[in-house]
Amino acid sequence: MSCFPCFSSKRSNSRKDTGPTAVVRDSEFENPVPKNQTDAIPNDTGNANISAKTFTFRELASATKNFRPDYLLGEGGFGRVYKGSLENSGQTVAIKQLDRNGFQGNKEFLAEVSKLSQLHHQNLVNLIGYCADGDQRLLVFEYIPNGSVEDHLFDLSDGKKPLNWYTRMKIAYGCAQCLEYLHETVNPPVIYRDLKTSKLLLDADFNPKLSDPGFARPGPMGDLMGTYGYSAPECTNTANLSVKSDVYSFGVLMLELITGRRVVDTTKPTNEQNLVTWAAPMFKDQKRYHELVDPLIEGDFPAKDLNQIVAVAAMCLQEEASVRPLMADVVVTLSFLTNPGPGSLFHSLPLPPEGGGAAAHE
């Protein structure tokens, strides 16, 4: 599209599109504490470069009352995440178990934890610590109390109010900043690879935080293609991951924020079930942009901002990866769209009821 005047970042050519690192994967749930569980990490695991705190399995089992069902926060394809309270500090955390079959041993696991522990950004969920007792693999993250973007876009039960336009732009901007950090500041770059609304969490002030990134191993691996509907065409066809694959997924996420529609919704008419396919014809006609906007926003958005944000989404969703912008360019553009002007109905949203928070980390 030609209506993209703000894509002028000087950093656009500062980093190549490739440069994946290794995958940290989620796990299957194991409930009982093993009888012969050791409390110490072997001395030969090479954990000297890890800045995160070391926990024993018994400490984390105690923090979750032995992984009680009512402490369960979320469950993904690779395991479960539990809310816990650390005994010494009383800090509330999210504890995730990892697939013990996903690593050859402690050295490999700790090498990946070392990489994860070096990532620090205001829009990235912070890794607090880890556990590598025996064959146990767990990660401890900060607890994010306000649930996921998915919860606030598609589930308005429990008295939730719809996200207003500026909150949605704030979410998009924070997510873009985090991806820019992963792509252009971290060396080698980190490809998030599975960006979606359930992975984007919201703190008490509705600031977005990406849950822990999966480190993508190079090569045509089928499990790296992400989630259907969010994955870029090149991932589906060739599993050829790059930072531009994340840009495509970000475009899908932006489209969900604009429309309030799920990326795939089989309850809608056949021609509207795939969000990107449904929206694509409207990208070509600026007069139709208003048809994309979530009716729950009730028309409270600046028309000129809508034109720009739809242009950003359309550029991110280009079929050819080389045509998509870098996240640095997206950040520059979104920085002008996050603050309400005089008279705008921008207001903070109420917190969900107690117990309604979640830390997806799926």
Results as ranks from 00 to 15, higher is better:
L86T: 10
H183D: 00
G174L: 04
L116D: 03
K161M: 14
D99Y: 08
R137E: 14
Q97I: 09
L86E: 07
N88R: 15
C178F: 00
A61G: 04
A172D: 06
L119H: 04
P189V: 01
Y181M: 03
N88E: 15
E150L: 08
V186T: 09
Y192S: 02
L73C: 10
H120V: 03
N66I: 08
N146H: 08
K65Q: 13
G102Q: 15
P189D: 02
Q122S: 05
D70A: 12
L116C: 00
S51K: 13
P162Q: 13
S85I: 13
Y181I: 01
N49I: 08
Y166K: 05
Q177K: 13
K83Y: 11
F78K: 07
I50C: 09
L98P: 10
Q122T: 05
N101H: 14
K115E: 03
D194T: 00
T167E: 08
L116F: 02
S114E: 15
Y130L: 03
A94Y: 09
L110T: 03
G105W: 11
S157G: 11
T92V: 15
K160S: 07
I128W: 05
N49S: 14
F78P: 00
N49K: 14
H121K: 00
N101C: 12
F57A: 04
I50G: 06
N66Y: 10
A61N: 07
V149K: 05
R168M: 04
A52S: 11
L139Q: 10
I128N: 03
Y166E: 07
F154A: 15
G77N: 12
A61F: 02
M169V: 02
L139S: 11
E59I: 02
I191A: 00
V149S: 03
S85C: 07
F67I: 10
K107P: 02
D155H: 15
L60H: 01
E150Y: 13
G105E: 10
V113T: 02
P69H: 15
S157A: 10
I144M: 09
N101F: 13
N146G: 02
V125M: 00
P188T: 01
M169I: 03
T167W: 09
I95E: 02
E180N: 06
Q91F: 05
R80P: 04
L98A: 09
S114F: 01
Q104W: 11
E184M: 09
N47G: 12
R137F: 15
Y130C: 01
V140I: 11
S89G: 00
L182M: 04
P69N: 15
Q91V: 10
N146P: 03
C175G: 06
Y71R: 08
K161N: 12
N66R: 10
L73V: 11
L139I: 12
N123Q: 05
K115Y: 06
D70M: 12
Q91E: 15
G129E: 05
N126G: 04
S62K: 08
H120L: 02
C131D: 02
L179A: 00
L138V: 13
Q104M: 14
A172Q: 01
V81M: 01
I144C: 08
A172P: 06
I128M: 06
G77Q: 12
Y130T: 05
D155C: 13
L156T: 07
L182S: 01
